[in-house]
């Protein structure tokens, strides 16, 4: 098996190396003239995101507006992954023994106090990443992962029960559903106002204080990213909880 794997890998590697190094029409690294960089689509994105959406960060604009369908179903994929992990590993124990706190398992005072100081700052930073994602790197996915990591930090520093008291399993699933509903809601709102699904420009008719389609896209993107953040936060926390406790959702790592 190992020998066969070696032969297969070596052959495929040689073919690919030949392909990337000696074929003439394979563009070299860093040429602006390669087909991928000269394609009308990417040129359109670079030239027009700022006038279409008022968002300086092209990646956010393309992610949440031009490719809105894609991102919506990526969010659904994350939600379904959470549901799948729940279905695979979750076990329900009736009247299970609660965790015995001994000297070894008691949370350490230095770690908990540092976490007390840091976790609000981490969550604030996650919100900053979310809200400032329009003009600097960041956005819903990154902010959601950082927020989820802050809950994981609570679970690591104290234990999972304390974290579940703040953000229970049921709340987490509800939040992840709410995230997708927020996302789809922005799409449906634009449908009801007479545009295509996820074509946010029309929302300026109902948003107070917004009078141009561009600014409507700007704010709708923020809303969509908030939806993404809800889903990613709760699913990351759930995955950690389920994996660290073999699906028991109590005590844990």
């Amino acid at each position: 098996m190992k020998k066969l794997a070696g032969i297969v890998v070596f052959t495929v590697g040689l073919i690919l190396l030949y392909g990337v190094s000696s074929l003439d029409d394979f563009p070299s690294w860093g040429t602006p003239d390669s087909p991928a960089n000269k394609s009308p689509l990417s040129q359109y994105f670079i030239k027009n995101t700022i006038v279409d959406t008022e968002v300086p960060n092209m990646v956010t604009a393309v992610l949440a507006d031009y490719r809105g369908y894609d991102t919506m179903f990526e969010t659904v994929v994350i939600f379904v992954a959470g549901l799948g992990i729940f279905a695979v590993v979750r076990v329900f124990e009736h009247g299970g023994a609660s965790r015995v706190v001994t000297a070894d398992t008691k949370p350490d005072i230095i770690i908990t106090n540092t976490c007390r100081l840091l976790i609000p700052l981490i969550q604030l930073f996650a919100l900053y990443v979310l809200a400032h994602g329009h003009s600097s790197p960041g956005g819903g996915f990154q902010g959601g992962v950082i927020m989820g990591a802050s809950f994981i930090l609570v679970a690591l520093a104290w234990d999972l029960d304390i974290a579940l008291k703040r953000f229970s399993e049921k709340q987490a699933f509800i939040c992840s559903g709410i995230g997708i509903l927020i996302y789809a809601g922005f799409g449906l709102a634009s449908v009801f106002l007479g545009e295509e699904f996820l074509n946010y420009g029309i929302i300026h008719k109902i948003l107070p204080g917004v009078d141009s389609p561009e600014m409507a896209r700007y704010y709708a993107m923020l809303g969509v990213e908030i939806g993404v953040m809800f889903t990613v936060t709760s699913i990351m926390f759930l995955i950690y909880g389920l994996l660290a406790t073999r699906g028991k959702m109590t005590a844990g790592l």
């Binding site: 790197p137 960041g138 990154q142 992962v145």
Partner: peptide, 13 residues
């Protein structure tokens, strides 16, 4: 953006 995502996701979570 990809680097930020990787730092949060790949290396952390």
């Amino acid at each position: 953006d990809v680097a930020f995502t990787e730092a949060a996701v790949g290396a952390g979570v």
